[in-house]
């Protein structure tokens, strides 16, 4: 190790693991966007169009 970073590429297995983790993170972020969107709609409730600005 010598305390220095190497520049060698990641192995195929490492890359596959990283890709899967990235996918899970993307799904989690997408889920959070959906969570905020639906919650906003629910909290607005009915009759949004009739409300005064």
């Amino acid at each position: 190790m010598n305390g220095q970073m190497t520049n060698a590429p990641f192995s195929k297995e490492d890359m596959a693991r990283r890709k899967k983790r990235a996918l899970v993170m993307a799904l989690a972020l997408g889920g959070m966007v959906l969570l905020f969107f639906i919650t906003t709609i629910v909290r607005l409730g009915g009759g949004v169009i009739e409300r005064g600005m």
Binding site: T6, N7, A8, P9, F10, S11, D14, R17, R18
Partner: peptide, 12 residues
Amino acid sequence: GTETRAAEVGGQ
């Protein structure tokens, strides 16, 4: 080299 890199930066 690859093992060292993964261990250094995480991602294993």
